[in-house]
Simulated scan of single mutants.
Amino acid sequence: MTDAKPLDGEDRDGVNRLYRLYAGWLTRRLCAEVGADAADDVVQETYLRAAPHSAEIRHPKAFLLRIARNLLKDEARRDARRRDAPATRDPADSQAASQFDEVLLGQVVRGMPPLYRDVFVLNRFRGMTYAEIARTLGVSPKTVEWRMARALEYCASRLDL
């Protein structure tokens, strides 16, 4: 991921000190922008990038925040490239993939136990709400929720999600 050099004892102490002093602050600062899980990942990568420079940092908060924001920008650019990449594919390939996905989903839904399948089909393909499904099937909305959760678990297990 990064081209960080091995740290000698002095550099390692500098990174440890930086981490103890500012990791909590940086994590809280990034949580508002990207959420807790992503913030933790960005903070770790920030310290990997900052490690070779830890002895020469004069304004640590500004330095760490700049690295973190650059990492977020890099990730946003990668995401944009990933989103744009399918547009460059051959339309026939994406149509074939889409047809394959539809056939696979159809097989999974047909193999689903009927109690789960009814709720899944009514919600996902007919657009009915849980309350409407409950009235139609004569069950409680909680039962519909439970069956839908099981239907989604079933799909995920069969589609390796």
Rank of each mutant, 00 (worst) to 15 (best):
K73N: 07
D90N: 15
I57L: 05
R77E: 02
A68C: 03
P52H: 01
L71M: 09
A62F: 06
A92E: 15
L64C: 08
T88E: 15
A92V: 14
A55M: 13
Q95T: 12
D74H: 03
L65D: 06
K73E: 12
R89A: 13
R77A: 00
S54V: 01
E75C: 00
F63L: 11
D93G: 05
F63K: 08
R82D: 15
L64T: 06
R78S: 02
D84G: 12
Q95A: 15
Q95L: 12
I57G: 03
R69D: 06
I67G: 02
I67Y: 06
N70K: 08
H53D: 03
I57Y: 04
L72C: 07
P86W: 08
H59W: 05
T88Q: 14
A68W: 02
D74C: 02
R82I: 15
R81E: 15
S54K: 00
D90Y: 05
R83K: 15
A68K: 00
R89I: 03
L64W: 05
P52S: 00
L65E: 11
L71E: 09
P91N: 12
H53I: 01
E56G: 15
R58I: 11
I67R: 04
R58W: 04
R89P: 03
L72G: 07
S94R: 12
S94Q: 10
A80S: 09
A76M: 02
P91G: 11
L71D: 09
E56K: 15
L64M: 10
H53K: 07
A62I: 07
S94Y: 01
R89N: 08
R83T: 12
K73L: 13
R78M: 02
A87M: 09
D79W: 03
H59Q: 13
R77I: 01
P52M: 00
D74Y: 02
Q95W: 04
R69W: 07
L65R: 08
A62D: 12
I57S: 05
R82H: 14
E75D: 00
A80I: 10
A55Y: 03
S94L: 12
A68G: 04
R69N: 09
E56V: 04
R66S: 13
P86E: 13
L65N: 07
R69P: 04
R69A: 07
A85Q: 04
R89E: 06
A76E: 00
K73Y: 10
